[in-house]
């Protein structure tokens, strides 16, 4: 692996939105990520698939430093995530403020929505823009209503999460992430907690985002979505990337035994 100094090849002008190099992650003695290398281009939609426990969620959480990595480096838009490089090439943990600043540019959508239950849909959306970015209330609200309309929930601005269906909650969560104007959106099984009839409305919003050119890393079991929307599909298993390629090639022409077994299991479900 090539060393990169702080003034190295990656600047904000790079075409790479995500550049993960040799990422290792342990939970105690359990090595969950065993050297993940992944590059995501600006505007690209990458879908990550793989069996349960293969490390998909963990990897996604490393990208915005909700998990600390034990080895390797992750750059987002040219910025090293979670660490600072000292003069002699060593890594030290970055300040909380800097980490927060980088996270503010990365949207994340969780499997369980994680809406703030004490706030209405609109309040959920304007909270971070106002508190983190210091945007004035009127502006934040105007933008918030715009985003609610975009996800088809203009009527639900004043509803509390407990009064929304799962699909509606997840769409609010997407709007909440978008309100920070992220460069990159991370989706962790955004539809897995939903009743089957509610999956479509969330996928539709995600498709629309992809069409608008948002850079997205999407962990999902929705193979239809992967086939239609992904520019590239990545198959993770056992903490490493086993195979990656265009959807068509991955879903029909792969010679990787593990991938074919995995796809076989998915189809049976």
């Amino acid at each position: 692996m090539a060393m990169r100094g702080s003034t190295g090849a990656y600047t904000n002008g790079t075409r790479l939105m995500v550049d993960a190099r040799d990422v290792h992650k342990y939970f105690h003695n359990n090595e969950v990520l065993r050297g993940v290398n992944m590059q995501v281009l600006r505007g690209e939609v990458v879908v990550v698939i793989g069996p349960s426990g293969s490390g998909k969620t963990t990897f996604l959480r490393c990208i915005n430093h909700l998990e600390k990595i034990n080895r390797g480096r992750i750059y987002v838009d040219g910025k090293l995530i979670g660490y600072r490089e000292t003069g002699d090439g060593k890594l030290v943990e970055d300040s909380e403020r800097n980490i927060a600043g980088i996270r503010a540019e990365i949207g994340m959508v969780f499997q369980r929505f994680n809406l703030f239950p004490h706030l209405t849909a609109l309040q959920n959306i304007i909270e971070a823009p106002m508190q983190v970015k210091g945007i004035a209330r009127e502006q934040a609200e105007a933008r918030g209503r715009e985003l609610l309309a975009k996800v088809g929930l203009a009527q639900k601005a004043d509803a509390y999460p407990a009064r929304l269906s799962g699909g509606q909650q997840q769409r609010v969560a997407i709007a909440r992430a978008l309100a920070m104007d992220p460069k990159l959106m991370l989706f962790d099984e955004a539809t897995s907690a939903l009743d089957p009839e509610l999956v479509g409305e969330v996928l539709k919003v995600m498709r629309q985002l992809a069409e608008e050119g948002m850079t997205m890393v999407v962990v999902t079991h929705e193979m239809g979505f992967a086939r239609d929307v992904a520019d590239r599909v990545i198959f993770m298993d056992g903490g490493i990337i086993q195979e990656e390629g265009a959807p068509a090639q991955m879903f029909s022409a792969s010679s990787n035994e593990r991938l074919r077994t995995f796809l076989g299991q998915i189809r049976e479900e």
């Binding site: 996270r103 949207g107 969780f110 994680n114 971070a128 909440r176």
Partner: peptide, 11 residues
């Protein structure tokens, strides 16, 4: 998840 969602928004 509440704290994590907040952190993911840059808080």
């Amino acid at each position: 998840g509440q704290l994590e969602a907040a952190k993911s928004l840059g808080m």
